[in-house]
Design a protein around this nucleic acid. Structure first.
Length: 272
DNA sequence: CTGGATGCCTGGGAGC
DNA sequence: TGCTCCCAGGCATCCA
């Protein structure tokens, strides 16, 4: 579900937990955790218990939590994942998989009804190692990086934008939005994006993502910020979710189709 | 190597 | 009200 802007919104909202020490973790499902060791002590340790949170990092759609005892947890939200922060402990709800308690008695909950997401535990270096397999982050994507991702690629330009190994953080919503802003048809072959269009598309990707971060992410079905409040970026959408509705630029009805197995909305007039 | 198709899950909404 | 069907923002894995 959540793409870069949603994950970045979560990261920013969690800033107050930096400096806090993890005092307890409750695991309600082990199968959402990769790399979980055997043994109660080892499990607690791998899930940051006893460590002080020193950093919250993000690359693309992945969120990293790092503690001063050299442990890290990488959070992937998949389609329906949430990270919630409560100032007092509450009864776990259905689909709450992992609950941390911090030394200020606040709790951090990872919940994910569809379980396409999950956690990966590791040592201090494991986040960087993991993120080496991802492309550059979409928020700061350079024109040159985008050019490199598109060059010689025999697939739809939208499929390239969605490929996390090429560009990290763009999902179905913001791919449609960026291509609409840049006036490029999602089905166009990536290798046929012209040199003069590359900077426009790179700019569109950065802008669309940055605006959505400002609006605290797009709440469609599951996404909420850690305090449970919805983001407002849906109000900014010009293409996504508007199939059949008039294009805000030219008034022609927006077309709905499938590209890379994903629902795709575009304007046949404005996007060539 | 590349790119395309498939399957994993639950819940919400539409339609009957 | 209740049922069935369809759809959903991701991604690992398998296949051609």
């Amino acid at each position: 579900m959540p793409e870069l802007p949603e994950v970045e919104s979560i990261r920013r909202a969690l800033a107050p937990i930096v400096g806090r020490t993890v005092v307890k973790v409750e695991i309600f499902r082990t199968d959402v955790i990769e790399g979980l060791p055997r043994g109660v002590e080892q499990r607690q340790n791998s899930l940051l218990v006893g460590g002080r949170i020193i950093d919250l990092l993000r690359h693309g759609k992945q969120l990293g939590v790092e503690t001063d005892n050299g442990r890290t947890v990488c959070i992937q939200l998949g389609m329906s994942g949430q990270v919630l922060r409560c100032t007092a402990s509450t009864e776990p709800r259905k689909h709450d998989h992992v609950v941390w308690t911090l030394d200020d008695r606040s709790t951090l909950t990872f919940r994910d009804p569809r379980r396409f997401g999950g956690l990966t535990v590791g040592d201090a270096g494991s986040l960087k190692r993991r993120w080496q397999d991802l492309g550059p982050d979409g928020l700061t994507l350079s024109d040159e990086s985008l050019a490199a991702a598109l060059t010689g690629r025999n697939r739809a330009v939208k499929a390239v934008l969605l490929d996390q190994a090429l560009i990290a953080g763009v999902g179905n919503i913001y791919a449609d939005e960026a291509l609409f802003m840049a006036g490029i048809r999602p089905a166009r072959n990536a290798s046929r994006v012209r040199g003069d269009e590359v900077p426009k598309l790179a700019q569109a990707i950065r802008t669309v993502l940055a605006k959505a971060v400002e609006a605290r992410g797009s709440s469609l079905r599951d996404y909420v910020q850690p305090d449970g409040v919805k983001g407002e970026a849906v109000l900014l959408h010009q293409a996504y979710g508007r199939g059949g509705l008039p294009c805000i630029r030219c008034g022609a009805p927006l077309r709905k189709t499938t590209i890379a197995q994903r629902t795709t909305v575009f304007c046949a007039e404005c996007q060539r």
